[in-house]
Design a protein around this nucleic acid. Sequence first.
DNA 1: TATAGGATTGCC
DNA 2: GCAATCCTATAG
Length: 232
Amino acid sequence: MSRPLARAFYARPTLEVARALVGTRLVHEHPEGVLAGRIVEVEAYIGESDPACHASAGPTARNAPLYGEPGRTYVYLNYGLHCLLNAVTEADGRPAAVLIRAVEPELGLDVMRRRRTRGGATPPPDAALCRGPGNLTRAFGITLAHNLGDLVHGPVTIHRGRVADAAVRWTPRIGLTRGEDRVWRCVLAESAAVSGPAGWVTRGLARPRPARAMADGDRRRDAGRGRQRPRC
DNA sequence: TATAGGATTGCC
DNA sequence: GCAATCCTATAG
C-alpha cells in the first residue's frame, strides 16, 4: 500500500486541506485486518471565530488537539453516543480541523458490516456502511482511544487520492445550531456514500432548514480572520 | 455543584 | 417526531 500523506499536507489553510481530502483514502490497520475507503464528504472547522468550532470558546482540555500538531486526529464523543473523527490542520497553535463525514468502503467490508449490524438485523447497503460521521467511525472501529493519534504514522492514516474540481460541491455544514452561514462542507457530488437528507445539496437543492439570519456578534468576530473561500 | 445542550442516529 | 446517552461548558 502507498505511503500516508505527509504532515505538510495538513499544515495548510483548512479549506484547502478539506478540498484535497475529498478523494483520498482513509486506512485503518488493526488486528482484524485492513479497513479502507475513499473519503467523499468533509467539513471544515476553523479557528476561534467559527462559532461551530470547538475552539470557539478558547483553549480547553477537550479541544487541546485542535491547537496542536497538524496531521493528528481529534476524536470526540458527540451526543454522548458517537465518536467523530477530525484531521487537525494548519500550523501548530492555530485551532482548526476537518471533520471526516463519509467514506466509500473499499477494503474490509465484512468487518464493517459486522460492526454496523445491530441485533440480528441485515447489514446496511455497502454505500451506507460509512455514511455519516458516527457511522463511519463505528464501521472503522475508531474510538476515543484514537484521539490525538497520528495520521502520518498510523494505525489510522490517510493516503493519496484525487478527484476533479468539477466533481465536488461546497455546501453549508450539516446539523449545526450556529455557524450555518459558512459554506465549508465539501462533497463528491456523485457519490452514493454522501450523508445528509436525501437529494440535499449534492444535487443543488436548498438547505434543509431556512438559514437563520447571521447574528451581529458572528459578523463582528469574522472581520478579523482572513477570507478563506473555496474557489469552486 | 447543577444543568443545558450538542459537528448524530435510528426507531416510533 | 423524538429518545438515547454522557461529557463539556457555563451558570449559580
